[in-house]
């Protein structure tokens, strides 16, 4: 049901754009919606981050995955149990670029004779990494539409991505990888009963949306060609604030663009904010130095204390007369 609702929503968005991009509403899809969606994306994301940052994190609560800094003869695991800010930074770099904590993913299975066995489970990590890196390369490749002149690194990226020179225009490996990875991630969600049980519409919808974006892009590049000069006019017009929406760019292009707009507008209100959230995860970005430094909770209430020293001072004479042993003297 959740799958069906998500699928219907994405397919409806596709048909809406396919039909309306051919009418007088084209400027809506080529000009107004991209600006609105981008503003929503940027402001929404900043708002989410600020809201997170308003929560104090009084203690260091990193998840520790190795030996903490201790006596000199115990080897300290710097990346898995960082002690300084620099070590925590190193841990974050590996987390953001290579999803190190997902690499540690394990799976629990029951053997036929009823024993519980834990095993390594790398498929989610591999498909996730393939998807995210492909997405990054694809986004960077799209800079060729937004930048004039096209910078050298974008051309290098295109050359490497199209290394095998299959077909004209050249087949990009990332196009293959991203569709394959997303298909795997979808099938994993549907076919594993435990994963399907915890999956929400909020999980299926972005998956279908991204798949829709990738597939409309693939269709446009390899099958139903479009006028790239017109596409570049649209993209350049958006970033130079002289937007146009030429008909020559084609309905499929405006559909692709509309799906991207939906993604951008949906981004700050969905699980996709993990792009910012990973940087603000206290279990990842803090150094484990609780034993070396004192971290005071900023909202601790003022507590009235009366130490033994003060007590002894107050009742000094009485205690002395009664013959109690005193610390002072």
């Amino acid at each position: 049901m959740k799958i069906l609702v998500s699928l219907v929503l994405v397919v409806a968005a596709v048909f809406l754009a396919l039909v309306l991009a051919g009418t007088g509403l084209r400027p809506l899809f080529g000009v107004a919606l991209p600006y609105l969606a981008f503003a929503t994306f940027l402001i929404g994301l900043a708002w989410r981050v600020v809201r997170w940052a308003r929560s104090p994190v009084p203690f260091r609560i990193p998840t520790t995955c190795g030996q903490q800094k201790s006596l000199a003869f115990l080897p300290h695991s710097r990346l898995d149990n960082p002690f300084t800010g620099r070590q925590a930074f190193g841990r974050m770099v590996l987390e953001v670029l290579f999803f190190r904590s997902l690499f540690r993913n394990t799976t629990a299975t029951l053997t036929r004779d009823g024993r519980l066995v834990y095993g390594s489970e790398k498929w989610l990590w591999a498909a996730g990494l393939a998807f995210h890196w492909s997405l990054l390369v694809i986004v960077l490749r799209h800079l060729r539409f937004f930048l004039e002149p096209v910078p050298g690194f974008v051309e290098v990226l295109q050359d490497v991505d199209g290394f095998f020179q299959v077909w004209v225009p050249v087949l990009y490996l990332t196009d293959l990888v991203i569709v394959a990875a997303m298909t795997f991630l979808f099938l994993r969600r549907v076919l594993l009963p435990q994963v399907r049980y915890i999956s929400l519409a909020n999980d299926y919808f972005p998956l279908f949306l991204l798949l829709g974006i990738a597939l409309t892009g693939v269709l446009m590049r390899y099958f139903f060609k479009t006028d790239l000069a017109a596409v570049k006019d649209v993209a350049l017009g958006l970033v130079t604030f002289r937007p146009t929406a030429p008909e020559a760019a084609g309905s499929l292009f405006y559909t692709h663009l509309f799906l991207v707009c939906v993604l951008l507008a949906y981004f700050p209100f969905s699980k996709l904010v993990h792009v910012a959230g990973v940087f603000l995860s206290p279990t990842r970005n803090l150094a484990n130095n609780n034993r070396a430094e004192r971290h005071v909770n900023p909202w601790n209430p003022e507590v009235k204390t009366h130490s033994y020293q003060e007590y002894e001072e107050e009742f000094h004479d009485l205690m002395k007369n009664a013959g109690y042993p005193l610390e002072r003297e």
Partner: peptide, 12 residues
């Protein structure tokens, strides 16, 4: 891209 077009990029 906005900053790039405003600075490096030529008149488009």
């Amino acid at each position: 891209p906005i900053w790039y077009q405003a600075s490096v990029g030529g008149a488009v």
